[in-house]
Write a protein that binds this DNA or RNA. Structure first.
Lengths: 223, 223
DNA sequence: CTCCGGTATGTTGTATACAAAATATCGTAT
DNA sequence: ATACGATATTTTGTATACAACATACCGGAG
């Protein structure tokens, strides 16, 4: 049943698979990754696997301790407290750029995605909201047109996926998130770069606040 | 005479050496890196070398093309135009943080470094000015106390080193840079976070402007 | 019983041999 | 002479074997 063309190298495939499994939490944070075991599971030898682990290590998804082993990165609350403000700053800049130089077609695409968000929220479908939200932010970065900004934000997003908690699971956070997106879209329509930046920055910091609250009082979360 | 302890693995040593050679432009941007040749030069086998190249590739210092080879990354002017605004934003945030929560001891350390800058500038010693400037920015990030911000900025700085041009070589840029640093120090003393952020952001953007000018009119550069 | 040291085991790190892919070379046909 | 194609060579990608290091286990001394 392995019909898909294997164009890429085994090490690259391993990077993709492992990255997916780490983000899916099929590989839990803190878990040790035994090279021999993992290599056999993937059906490859240790050589390409080790190259893959080097890449994941550089991305921050695993912690490669010399002569000790490889461990899936565990993000502490402190890490989140440090990363989210960076994301907030960078995505704020994205929003600023988009508000300034968006084309009508781009604005329409964003509107379409925002409508999806509205519908998923109305249906209470957290998973689809989350996915669409991801696509939305991706689309925003695309519109900003800064490839390196896209890379940096992308790297940080991958890292944040290590966190098992979703801010949307906090009571009331979904509607708040939606309200922030509405405010953002309004600012984009008005080409109000200052407001767009401020709203986006606040949007990310609000996510952090939600995660902080959930970590302190886990019973506030549902789902 | 190889008295130094070889604690780290060969692949890690290779990463260090190659990174240094790339930043020193001993390995020129665009140059192809033949695995067999490089391995022999470093006195190691291809296995650890390849792992090193994977790491450098993840850092963006080399471009690893499947089945083609490894090439030292070439930064275009467009790349600089994209990276500097990001650096400006992030270092601006650093300045904001430092102005807010610096301790008297930290401020003193920064003052000491700034004095060095003044002296090197007065002596017209571009290289030392450049080095000290690097240490100064590093110290700032240290004071900001955000490890991830430090990592992200560090990665971008490594990338920027790929550029063969130093903005300081532009006529008049040295004194301008110094003036910006003076303004920054004043803001830090006053704990004026807003100004510190704005000055630092402008400092980075001014470097970009200098590079842009040099790229358009290379004869404006000296050194 | 606890602590220390030595051996045993297993895992990571490296080298080498081999497979696969891309590039270069050379001969032939137009 | 140039363009095309088959072969040869080089280079990247992978597997396996071995070495180095860390840890676990076990036995003995205090």
């Amino acid at each position: 049943m392995k019909t898909r063309v294997n164009r890429s190298s085994l090490s690259e495939q391993a990077v993709g698979l492992l990255r997916e499994q780490i983000c899916n939490h099929a590989l839990m944070p803190g878990q040790r990754l035994d090279e021999a075991v993992l290599a056999e599971q993937l059906g490859i030898s240790r050589t390409p696997l080790r190259e893959a682990l080097k890449v994941l290590s550089a991305e921050g998804l695993v912690d490669l301790q010399p002569h000790k082993g490889c461990f899936v990165t565990e993000l502490s609350l402190r890490d989140l407290e440090e990363i989210f403000p960076i994301m907030a700053t960078l995505e704020g800049r994205v929003a600023h750029e988009v508000a300034t130089k968006r084309t009508p077609a781009q604005l329409k695409a964003l509107d379409t995605l925002h409508d999806k968000l509205e519908r998923h929220a109305a249906a209470g479908d957290l998973n689809r909201y989350y996915e669409t939200n991801y696509v939305f932010h991706d689309q925003m970065q695309e519109c900003a047109g800064n490839r390196w900004l896209q890379i940096v934000i992308g790297d940080l997003r991958k890292l944040l996926k290590l966190s098992r908690h979703h801010s949307l699971r906090l009571e009331g956070r979904l509607s708040a998130s939606l309200a922030e997106h509405r405010a953002l879209m309004q600012a984009l329509h008005r080409q109000d770069a200052e407001t767009a930046e401020k709203v986006m920055c606040g949007h990310l910091l609000a996510q952090l606040a939600a995660l902080r609250e959930m970590s302190l009082a886990p019973e506030a979360a549902h789902g």
